[in-house]
Design a binder for these strands. Structure first.
Lengths: 197, 197
DNA sequence: GACTTGACTACACGGTCGTGTAGCTGTCTA
DNA sequence: TAGACAGCTACACGACCGTGTAGTCAAGTC
């Protein structure tokens, strides 16, 4: 159980794990303490309160994710990263952040807004056709995050583990199929734009 | 506060509202009772337990949603419904069901699997190009539901209320823009299919 | 008018929650 | 070697949770 990590790090990892699995309210301090192999008092000693523990997890997940994607850019160059945001290594962190956001995290909410703004600029400079770049990016972002929120359902439906290379590859291929062909004909699109019933 | 409804119906509506807003664990029997204007004991009298109340809400939301979409098909014909699944009137029910699914509802999970299967058949008969219809449908479904789960973030990002006609129309237009143009060139798609890094 | 029944309330129960507090360790330092 | 001080535990606290129980009240039945 990662005995080489400090107790503080083990608490943080256990909290991220249980917060992700059960939500913030669903995971108790005592459960997290047991998972980390420490007493519940130690959590209070290190983090002060449950809310402060959550914020520490938020900030850690955000910073670690930034660090990982920076490393990825250094390795692969900027252009391949947009799709590769969904990558196995940062998957647990992303999943945690989305869950935390749903449970009211301001850190995660700020990250969401930032992602939308980035996507908006990307769309403008990459030839996306729309007269509402903001809505385009927001909807794309929300759809992308849906994979994290509904990971359990997705895995059950496809009988895979997304965190494995095979599962992740299958997911990527589905994304590619979806985003490399239009689902609506120009006529259908024009009709829907006029009368969105 | 809908005084014309029976107490049982008011409890159910209040439960759906609070379960949606706070999650199943986050909404207490006492809160629901206060919201419905009854005593907490009455909830037990009518539904037996919190879990049974949740199942009653699940079944009600599912049946009501089916009923609404059947009415929509009768009005508009079958073909326009696939996109119109995202419609203002069934929005709260969908949002509730997705939230309940995330909190472990079997009824909602079954509905999800059913939706994936339906989407799979739709893709096969509507010229979608993929060699994995199942994954295609599952990912599309998950992305579609992302709108419900992350509704709060979406509304904050766009400064709209999705339940209004204007907000819903803006959302629909973004969907149309996204699904009427390919985001990847055939070359990019081929590359990603070979090496999903 | 006596009886039954279902809607409904008031209140008490054990359990779990986040938090508070007191005290025990080992290590470092003056 | 005495003292300071993190790291850490044990335990008690008030609050709130889902649930259980007893009882009130009005409407319907015979």
């Amino acid at each position: 159980m990662n005995d080489d990590l400090t107790a503080r790090a083990r608490i943080r990892d256990a909290a991220i794990k249980l917060f992700t699995e059960r939500g913030i309210e669903g995971a108790s301090i005592r459960d997290i303490a047991t998972e980390a192999g420490v007493s519940s008092g130690l959590i209070r000693h290190h983090f002060g309160s449950k809310e402060a523990l959550r914020e520490a997890c938020d900030n850690y997940a955000r910073d670690r994710m930034f660090q990982l994607s920076r490393e990825l850019i250094d390795e692969q160059g900027l252009e391949n990263v947009s799709i590769a945001t969904v990558q196995p290594v940062s998957f647990p962190l992303q999943t945690y952040l989305v869950r935390s956001m749903m449970d009211g995290s301001e850190t995660a909410a700020a990250l969401f807004q930032q992602t939308v703004e980035y996507g908006e600029e990307w769309a403008k400079t990459h030839g996306v056709v729309t007269d509402d770049f903001r809505a385009w990016s927001a909807v794309i972002t929300v759809m992308k995050l849906g994979v994290f929120v509904l990971r359990d359902q997705l895995e059950q439906s496809l009988d895979i583990d997304i965190s494995t290379a095979d599962g992740y590859a299958r997911l990527t291929r589905a994304f590619v199929d979806i985003f490399s062909q239009p689902l609506l004909t120009p006529e259908q699109a024009a009709n829907l734009r006029k009368d969105p019933s």
